[in-house]
């Protein structure tokens, strides 16, 4: 099998021959039926990296031959070392998107809802420093494409995790719970509350009054608290429901969060 592959690759290998003689010599000297990639690597680690680089430039490349897709899924496509994540820890090479890596993993977090204290911004910027398309233009076309996808995914992950509502929806999705954001609500209590909020917002005379609805306490009578407080409450009840795996309750909390968030946006628009 190894031989056949080599034969198919011959025109390509000839091209390599022009640029670097040793290429062919090594390949042909290593003709054994069962090709063990790691052995080659032990012997000629630098050589392999070089061949791969060249292969990328020529488009049709020795990928099926030298890349480790055949070897191990978790290792780097370029140097085949290390357990590669978004970026190979060994050769700094950007990896293709692996959808089994969830957003929490990207940020090195446990898969849980309450991550308020974490410094996402720093990790986000550290990733972008390695992945952002602006910084990888000296690399191969293939790696640039990986970087573009990974960078976009990190942006999305950051956006999703920093917002409590989208984080809640995302975590439920990871639990295979479907969230229908546009469903009609039949919760009478919530509906009346929303109507009340809307009325108060419409009646609010100035931005001072609006700010009060939004965040300040004081003028509110029994049981009525400002929108931001309500949002946080729902967020807490979501965390509780999620922990005890009560998904129906978790969904209800998301519904409330969605509505409070919208109400808050309305207020901000009017401010």
């Amino acid at each position: 099998m190894w031989m056949r592959k080599l034969r198919i690759l011959t025109p390509f290998s000839q091209k390599l021959l022009f640029t670097k003689r040793e290429t062919i010599t090594i390949s042909s000297s290593y003709c054994k039926p069962e090709f063990d990639f790691h052995t080659v690597e032990q012997f000629f680690p630098q050589y392999i990296r070089r061949v791969n680089f060249r292969g990328n430039n020529l488009g049709f490349c020795g990928r099926s031959l030298f890349s480790c897709e055949a070897a191990q899924r978790n290792s780097c496509w370029n140097c085949c070392n290390a357990k590669a994540f978004l970026v190979c820890t060994d050769c700094g090479c950007v990896q293709p998107v692996d959808h089994s890596v969830d957003y929490f993993k990207i940020f090195g977090l446990e898969k849980k809802y309450g991550i308020e204290g974490e410094n996402l911004e720093r990790t986000y910027k550290d990733w972008q420093r390695k992945l952002h398309p602006d910084l990888v233009h000296t690399k191969s076309q293939k790696e640039r494409e990986y970087a573009a996808e990974q960078s976009a995914r990190v942006i999305d992950a950051y956006r999703t995790l920093t917002d409590p509502l989208s984080r809640a929806i995302y975590i439920l999705k990871l639990e295979d719970v479907h969230v229908d954001e546009e469903e009609k609500i039949d919760d009478v209590e919530l509906l009346t509350e929303m109507l009340e909020i809307r009325e108060t917002v419409d009646e609010a005379a100035d931005s001072q009054a609006l700010k009060q609805i939004q965040e300040q306490c004081g003028v509110w009578t029994s049981g009525q608290i400002p929108i931001q407080g309500k949002f946080e409450q729902s967020s807490i009840s979501f965390a509780d429901a999620l922990q005890s795996r009560k998904y129906i309750e978790a969904l209800a909390a998301i519904r409330r969060m969605t509505y409070y968030k919208r109400a808050n946006e309305e207020i901000v628009k009017k401010l």
Binding site: E121, R122, Y124, K125, D126, Q128, R129
Partner: peptide, 9 residues
């Protein structure tokens, strides 16, 4: 802009 360690968002 929010800047940290040379990266600005």
């Amino acid at each position: 802009t929010a800047t940290a360690g040379g990266v600005s968002q």
